[in-house]
């Protein structure tokens, strides 16, 4: 590997760089209807994190997103590895009473909670739907990160809808999971227009080009690293970032500086 950056060379040589940790802002956990995940338990995921020097993973368990079981499953698993795991409180707008209950109990799990998760394309209600209103107000009031699943041309979480919620809830820190996949131009436009909107890299990195565009047009301070863990592998995604980013500052911003700032004090990010 004849990469010009020493940082990239070190990643290739050692598989991790001690002073360049990685924060994964988009994860899940547990088995899944459509995919066999060999490493979906908390134990195996944390093991994968250690092998790539991933310091923190913020996740929402598949069981919380794809059933109406509430967030206890995520909380229980995160408490097994409090140093490594943080939780997004999953909100399913089809069960608003459950969401309300989980939000009311948010402070009881503030040792692991880091924000809110919305999966509107799967739950089939737009992110502007009344079923999400309480969660948005909650996140806005507390200046919390909100990880959205966003997809280009989606009627549930496409870029136009992201713009609406960003305007309405200016203190919520909106991470566009998948960066409005496919509508990269609009995703960059949103990140540039709204101080509280950020790009996120899950499912972005399996194609050359978009990340280079993000860095060039939105700047690396607006980009968060994410993998959908246990969907995508750390070394594969780290390699992709190293393939795209040409400056050490950009790599460090994407891997940990932005996330450390956000998790430490969401209001100041």
């Amino acid at each position: 590997m004849k990469k010009s950056l020493q940082l990239a060379k070190d990643f290739f040589k050692y598989g991790m760089v001690k002073d360049c940790p990685v924060y994964d802002m988009h994860g899940h956990m547990g088995s899944h209807y459509g995919i066999y995940f060999p490493s979906s338990s908390a134990e195996k995921m944390v093991n994968a994190m250690k092998q790539a020097n991933v310091k923190k993973l913020v996740f929402s368990h598949h069981g919380c997103l794809m059933s109406n079981a509430g967030n206890q499953l995520s909380i229980r698993e995160a408490r097994k590895f409090p140093e490594y795991l943080k939780v997004y409180c999953s909100v399913n707008p089809n069960y608003p009473e459950l969401a309300e209950k989980d939000l009311a109990a948010f402070d009881e799990a503030n040792d692991v909670y880091a924000g809110i998760k919305m999966l509107a394309d799967y739950h089939k209600r737009p992110i502007t739907d009344a079923g999400y209103k309480k969660a948005w107000e909650f996140a806005n009031k507390r200046k919390l990160p909100v990880l959205l699943h966003t997809w280009g041309k989606s009627v549930f979480d496409g870029p136009e809808l992201v713009g609406e919620v960003a305007q309405k809830y200016p203190d919520a820190k909106i991470l566009m999971g998948h960066s409005c996949h496919g509508e990269w131009e609009k995703a960059v436009g949103l990140a540039n227009k709204f101080k509280n909107v950020y790009l996120e890299l899950t499912a972005v990195l399996d194609e050359r080009g978009p990340l280079e565009k993000f860095i060039e047009e939105a700047g690396s301070k607006k980009i968060f690293f994410g993998t959908d863990m246990p969907w995508f592998s750390y070394h594969n995604y780290i390699g992709a970032v190293l393939g795209a980013a040409q400056k050490e500052e950009d790599i460090r911003n994407i891997f940990y500086i932005n996330a450390e700032k956000l998790l430490k004090s969401p209001g100041d990010a």
Binding site: M1, I238, G239
Partner: peptide, 8 residues
């Protein structure tokens, strides 16, 4: 795709 991804 990024060759660096599969290589790393």
């Amino acid at each position: 795709k990024y060759p660096e991804a599969a290589m790393l």
